[in-house]
C-alpha cells in the first residue's frame, strides 16, 4: 500500500519551538504499521519537518513554496502524481491558524474520500479496502470499511507518537522537488491579531442570563445544584448509597433507573 503523510511546520504549544505537530507524528505511527510511507511537505523550508524522519519516515518529499503561500495547489499536484492509496494528515495544524481546512480542500480537489478523526487504520478483507476506526470521543468508535483511496485525518486519541530516533533522522532523506507555482494567496480572511486573552469557561449549570454576581454564586457553589462540598459524616450505609446514586444520576454519569422514577425530579444537564 502506498501511503502519504502530510507534514506541516508546527510550533510547540508551550515553548514555541519549531516542531512537527503531534498529530502528524501520530499519523506516522499509524502509517508505520501499514506499508511504505513517504512524507509530503509544502512550505518554504524543509528543515521544519526533518523531525519526521526520526519518527519513522524514510523519505520526505518537499515542494518549496514561498513564505505565506497556499500549500494546497502544490500538494494537489504532487498527490495527483503520487496517487497514494492512503493519505494521512493531522486533524488540525499546530501553531498556525489551526483551522484544519487543508485536508478538506485536498480531498475535494482530488475527489478523495475523507474520513476525519481516525485513531486506527488496518487493511480490510477485500483488495484495496481499509478499515478505519474513527473516534467519537470518550473511547467510542465508528468503524468504517471503505474502498480507497482515502484521506484520513488523525485524532489525538490515536496511539502516541513513536520516540524520535536521532539515527533514523540521520539516515532518512528529504527530496526537494523544486518550487511549485503557487498563488500568492495571503490569508483569505482579514484577521486582526493580538495576544491571546484567556476567557472564562462557561460553568455548567450556571444561570446564563443572570448577572455577574449570580454567575459567580453559581460557580463558587453558594447556591443551586452545583453546590460543592456536601459532607455526610458517618451516615447509615444505605443512606450513603442512596445519596451517592442520586448524585451520580444528577451529574448524569449513571443512567437513571426507570424503576426509581420517583426521584426522576433530579435534573439531568
Amino acid at each position: 500500500m502506498k501511503i502519504a503523510v502530510l507534514l506541516s511546520a508546527g510550533r510547540h504549544p508551550v515553548s514555541g519551538a519549531a516542531v512537527l505537530p503531534r498529530m502528524e507524528a501520530q499519523a506516522i505511527r499509524l502509517a508505520a504499521g501499514l506499508g511504505e510511507a513517504i512524507g509530503l511537505h509544502a512550505g518554504p523550508d524543509a528543515a521544519a519537518v526533518r523531525e519526521a524522519l526520526g519518527l519513522g519516515l524514510a523519505r520526505i518529499e518537499h515542494v518549496a513554496i514561498p513564505e505565506g503561500g497556499d500549500p494546497v495547489p502544490a500538494l494537489i499536484a504532487r498527490l495527483a502524481a503520487l496517487a497514494p492509496d492512503l493519505v494521512l494528515a493531522g486533524r488540525r495544524g499546530q501553531g498556525g491558524a489551526e483551522s484544519g481546512i487543508v485536508p478538506y480542500a485536498l480531498a475535494d480537489a482530488l475527489d478523495l474520500l475523507l474520513i476525519p478523526d481516525v485513531i486506527a487504520v488496518t487493511s480490510g478483507d477485500g483488495a484495496g479496502t481499509l478499515t478505519l476506526d474513527q473516534s467519537l470521543g470518550r473511547g467510542a468508535l465508528r468503524r468504517v470499511s471503505l474502498r480507497g483511496p482515502v484521506l484520513a485525518t488523525v485524532h489525538p486519541d490515536a496511539p502516541p507518537p513513536l520516540a524520535y530516533a536521532y539515527g533514523r533522522a540521520r539516515r532518512g532523506s528529504i527530496d526537494g522537488l523544486g518550487s511549485a507555482p503557487t498563488l500568492t494567496a495571503g490569508p483569505d480572511m482579514a484577521v486582526e491579531e493580538r495576544p491571546y486573552r484567556r476567557r472564562p469557561k462557561l460553568v455548567k449549570g450556571a444561570p446564563t442570563g443572570g448577572s455577574a454576581a449570580e454567575r459567580l454564586k453559581a460557580a463558587t457553589g453558594e447556591s443551586g445544584s452545583a453546590a460543592k462540598g456536601r459532607l455526610l459524616v458517618e451516615p447509615d450505609p444505605e443512606e450513603a448509597a442512596r445519596e451517592i446514586l442520586a448524585y451520580l444520576r444528577q451529574i448524569g454519569v449513571l443512567a437513571a433507573s426507570s424503576g426509581a422514577s420517583s426521584d426522576a425530579s433530579t435534573p439531568t444537564p
Binding site: 502516541p160 520516540a163 530516533a165 533514523r168
Partner: peptide
C-alpha cells in the same frame, strides 16, 4: 535503543 531504534520505554 534510543538513538538508532527509537525504542524508549513507552
Amino acid at each position: 535503543q534510543t538513538l538508532e531504534r527509537g525504542a524508549l520505554p513507552e
